[in-house]
Amino acid sequence: MSSAPGSPRHVAIIMDGNGRWATNKGWPRLVGHRKGAERVKEIVRVAPDLGVEYLTIYAFSTENWKRSTEEVLGLMTLFGRYIQREAKALSEEGVRMRFIGDRSRLDPKLRDLMVWIEEKTKDSTKLNLTVAINYGGRDELLRAARRIATQVEEGALAPDEVCEELLDRTLDTADLPDPDLVIRTSGETRVSNFLLWQAAYAEYEFTPVLWPDFTPEVMAEILSRYGHRERRFGGVKP
């Protein structure tokens, strides 16, 4: 396994298929989520070697609250345990961990852990890991629009000052570059409300591999294919 020339700087992943992976084996869905968390640790460790500087993973969407109470509570517990157990390793391996999404609905203890790990790893530079929890692209845009509207209403901002750059700075991802590549596992071919604004010109890769089976080798193969794509951002090749 090796990084290919022209590797994407920022890779975003819709980690799909944990529940299906467990169900296929006759196990509870939460077993699949635990296996998926182990896979996250593995991909985080190899990402810098593959040339990735920014890794954003879709952990829990604004729509995932529709799942059973047992599964939601299990996922929230899993998030907290991951932060606690991986804090030392992330810091030692140079991984900066941040979160995007609406934190208001999350348990206060989990919110405190999120702030704690963000502070603990803020000076790390080897890999920027962003975890989307209670995140939805539409919700993010709505929250940003409301903040801008408030500034206009208060007279702090003129309507003609509202521009793409301002919206960029108002989004949860204000200090992140746009993703170069978005990967979705499990064979589904939809974007599921993920980084709708930021991924406007991202390349997409849909793989049938379920997330718990998404090995570093699969990641390397996808990044290798990305290196052969021609990105024109709406222009034409001279």
Rank of each mutant, 00 (worst) to 15 (best):
L129S: 04
L73W: 08
Q84R: 11
W65Y: 11
K25M: 08
G36Y: 00
A220Q: 10
E93S: 14
G36T: 00
K35C: 02
F60K: 03
P8L: 15
L176N: 11
L167I: 15
Y54W: 12
F99Q: 03
S192Y: 09
G136L: 12
V115H: 13
D178L: 07
P108S: 10
V236H: 15
Q198V: 04
R111A: 09
R169A: 12
P5S: 14
A200F: 08
V191Q: 06
F214D: 00
P108C: 10
G235E: 11
V31A: 07
V44M: 02
N64Y: 07
R225A: 13
G235Y: 08
S2N: 14
K122I: 11
V182S: 03
R29Q: 07
Y201C: 10
V40W: 00
Q151W: 13
A37R: 01
D107L: 06
P48S: 09
Q84C: 13
E221L: 06
L110C: 03
V44K: 00
Y204D: 02
D123I: 04
F194P: 02
A202M: 08
D112Y: 05
A202Y: 04
S3P: 13
L127Y: 05
I148N: 07
N18G: 02
E42P: 02
H228R: 12
G80E: 08
T130I: 13
N193M: 05
G26Q: 09
V44E: 01
D107K: 12
V218E: 11
R105L: 10
S68Y: 10
H33P: 00
A87N: 04
K109L: 06
M114E: 11
P179R: 08
T121D: 07
V131Q: 02
G26H: 07
S104E: 15
I43C: 02
Y226V: 07
P108N: 07
V11Y: 03
P28R: 14
L166P: 10
E70F: 11
R138G: 12
A4F: 13
K41F: 03
G235S: 13
G80R: 06
L176T: 08
H228D: 12
E230G: 10
P238V: 14
W211I: 00
V236F: 12
S3N: 12
A144W: 12
A158G: 12
E53A: 14
T215D: 02
G17D: 02
R39H: 01
I57H: 03
A174C: 09
Y58A: 02
G36C: 01
V182M: 08
D160G: 05
E153P: 01
Q198L: 05
A199K: 04
W211E: 00
N24H: 13
D123N: 15
D16K: 00
T173I: 06
S7H: 13
S91T: 14
L167H: 11
R45I: 04
A47W: 01
A200N: 06
V31G: 01
D107Y: 06
S7F: 08
M97F: 14
W197Q: 05
L166Q: 09
L196D: 06
R81I: 05
E188N: 13
M76L: 12
A174Q: 11
V52T: 05
E188L: 02
I222C: 05
F214G: 01
M219S: 01
L90H: 14
G19Q: 00
